[in-house]
């Protein structure tokens, strides 16, 4: 008996559909269990974090238009810095505030690290300068989008690297005015890092500054503040953590001030003042608010 090819094709089609309906739910369950990073996790393991860091650096290299120190330059700089610091320490009488040396602004430090091109030591290095990037420029207005692919890939590689989300959202908001995409990316970051105070702060800042959604901004900023206080005590003392607390407090204070809740605003400004490097400026805002509160009270009494 010879079966018609049409029947064979029909039989195979039926079989494939049956098999698909049988296997699809199982595959879906497995992928849900593994999460979105399942494939990369299996393929690269913890090595994906190294790749994530590499891609994040790649974005930074783009920002500096290719003018970036190699690992050898960075090692040289670190050595020279260590020597300079040792020399400075020798000149100190031991009573000075050594912490001041460590309270350097991150960006300024980063830019300082870009001063890695020294006088060439030989003709090879001198001639080689013709074929390398020797001018420190930053990506021009509107060109910052070129960094985004590497940041996206870095986030795929290491979803727990919070800096990737905050950096990408910053550029999307500030340079590209793509608030929707920035919000989506931050929400994705929060799904992967639900307790991150930095991400909550960024999201709150986005709601407040770019979407003028005060209610959501307040809720998210309050969550950021709670998340900050829920940090382990040893991670509250570093400069970045202290700076973050200050920014959260000041932003919350501004939200409350804009909503007319001056008492709450003063409370948050007071908190911000305790960690701010410029408490005088915050104090001026507190004084202004106290005056407003007093005026309001007087108006209420008159009514």
């Amino acid at each position: 008996m010879h079966a018609s090819p049409k029947w064979i094709v029909a039989l195979l089609a039926t079989l494939s559909v049956s098999l698909a309906t049988l296997l699809a739910p199982t595959a879906q369950q497995r992928s849900e269990k593994r999460g979105t990073d399942g494939f990369l996790k299996i393929m690269l393991g913890d090595g994906r974090r190294l790749f994530a860091k590499h891609f994040f650096t790649k974005a930074d290299i783009y920002f500096h238009s290719g003018y970036y120190p190699s690992i050898f330059d960075q090692a040289n700089q670190a050595n020279q810095k260590a020597i300079t610091h040792a020399d400075e320490d020798d000149h100190h009488d031991g009573k000075e505030d050594h912490d001041a040396h460590h309270h350097e602004d991150h960006d300024a430090d980063h830019e300082e690290g870009m001063d890695f091109v020294k006088e060439p030591r030989d003709w090879i290095e001198r001639f080689g300068r013709n074929f390398t990037i020797n001018q420190h420029t930053h990506l021009a207005e509107g060109k910052q989008r070129e960094m985004l692919p590497w940041l996206r890939i870095a986030a795929e590689m290491d979803p727990q690297m919070v800096t990737t989300y905050t950096t990408a959202s910053y550029w999307l908001r500030k340079e590209k005015n793509r608030v929707g995409e920035a919000r989506q990316f931050l929400l994705e970051g929060l799904r992967n890092n639900p307790k991150s105070d930095e991400l909550l702060f960024e999201l709150g800042s986005l709601y407040y500054n770019d979407m003028a959604d005060t209610n959501r901004a307040r809720n998210v900023m309050t969550s950021a503040l709670s998340a900050w206080f829920a940090r382990p005590s040893q991670s509250k003392t570093n400069n970045e953590a202290i700076s973050l607390l200050g920014r959260i407090a000041v932003n919350l204070a501004r939200i409350e001030r804009d909503s007319g809740n001056y008492v709450e605003a003063i409370r948050y400004f007071e908190l911000g003042k305790t960690v701010s490097p410029t408490p005088e400026g915050i104090q001026a805002q507190i004084d202004q608010l106290r005056q407003n509160t007093f005026s309001n009270d007087v108006q209420n009494i008159r009514k």
């Binding site: 783009y62 238009s65 290719g66 090879i124 001639f127 080689g128 013709n130 074929f131 990037i133 001018q135």
Partner: peptide, 30 residues
């Protein structure tokens, strides 16, 4: 000093980052 410096011929970074490519004289010397 002994090895050939092949990195001179890799102009990808300069091109990608929209920087000025080396001059003809430098290319001729290379």
């Amino acid at each position: 000093f002994l090895i050939p410096h092949l990195e001179w011929y890799d102009l990808r970074d300069i091109f990608i980052n929209d920087q000025i490519l080396p001059g003809n004289a430098a290319c001729f010397m290379a």
